[in-house]
């Protein structure tokens, strides 16, 4: 088992994600520079949060053109689990590895706070060890997490069981106050049709240790580690 955390200029959750995987979960993990042509030999690829290329132009737009993204695509095609966290999610959208796009938060402000998300499907490597309906408490930190897609895409996401997490309250109810950014359908994370490429706005690496105030992020790591080991 070996994990890659991609480093773009402006990534700033790269070392946090590396810390969570290597020091908390005990997974051999490399920080992989964006100019790297190949991800052969990696069993898990994570695109971390941050402001790649300053988020200039559009969030994730420039990183989506980085050389490593061809390798990310190849890894995804091989069925390797790929996780995009926050800016990493935005990059996966811009790269076309996931459908849809991001708008600025409906509140027009950056939001850093704890939220609840409800697990909607177990079909991804990051959720198969949890239960549908389980509520996770995780932090968000973003200015553009307001997920949008056209009706056909949303229908397809629904029909193919590609919505992975939705914002909810602590009891798992989808209420107006529970959605921090105005995303359509309270979507917090989605996957591709195959289920192995997953993007989400909350930060599992920020809630993988008790000292940080929560450990629900570990469920994602434990789930994907079990999948890879199987």
């Amino acid at each position: 088992m070996r994990a890659a955390v991609i480093v773009f200029p402006g990534s700033n959750c790269d070392t946090d994600t590396h810390h969570a995987l290597s020091h908390v979960m005990g997974v051999p993990t490399d920080l992989v520079w964006h100019a790297t042509p190949s991800l052969d030999g990696y069993d898990l690829v994570v695109l971390p949060g941050g402001f790649s290329y300053g988020d200039y132009l559009r969030t994730g737009a420039m990183a989506a053109q980085a050389r490593v993204m061809r390798a990310v695509r190849e890894a995804a095609d091989r069925g390797v689990p790929v996780l995009g966290i926050c800016n990493g999610f935005q990059i996966l959208l811009e790269a076309g590895l996931l459908p849809g796009a991001m708008l600025p938060n409906a509140c027009v402000e950056f939001r850093c706070e704890w939220v609840h998300v409800r697990v909607e499907t177990r079909r991804t490597p990051f959720t198969e060890a949890t239960d549908v309906g389980r509520v996770l408490r995780m932090p968000i930190a973003h200015g553009e997490g307001n997920y949008v897609a056209d009706h056909e895409t949303l229908d397809a996401l629904h029909d193919n069981d590609q919505v992975v997490w939705r914002y909810s309250d602590a009891a798992g109810r989808r209420t107006a106050g529970a959605n921090p950014n105005g995303s359509v359908g309270d979507i917090a994370g989605i996957c591709n049709a195959r289920g192995n490429v997953v993007g989400l706005m909350p930060h599992p690496e920020r809630c993988s240790e008790t000292a940080l105030g929560g450990t629900d992020g570990r469920l994602l790591w434990e789930s994907v580690l079990a999948r890879v080991a199987a």
């Binding site: 700033n12 070392t15 810390h19 939001r111 850093c112 932090p139 930190a141 240790e209």
Partner: peptide, 16 residues
């Protein structure tokens, strides 16, 4: 105010 600031990045913040 402070929810507009990323006060967690770095995962050092145990007293927010």
């Amino acid at each position: 105010v402070y929810r507009q600031y990323d006060h967690m990045v770095g995962t050092h913040t145990i007293g927010p």
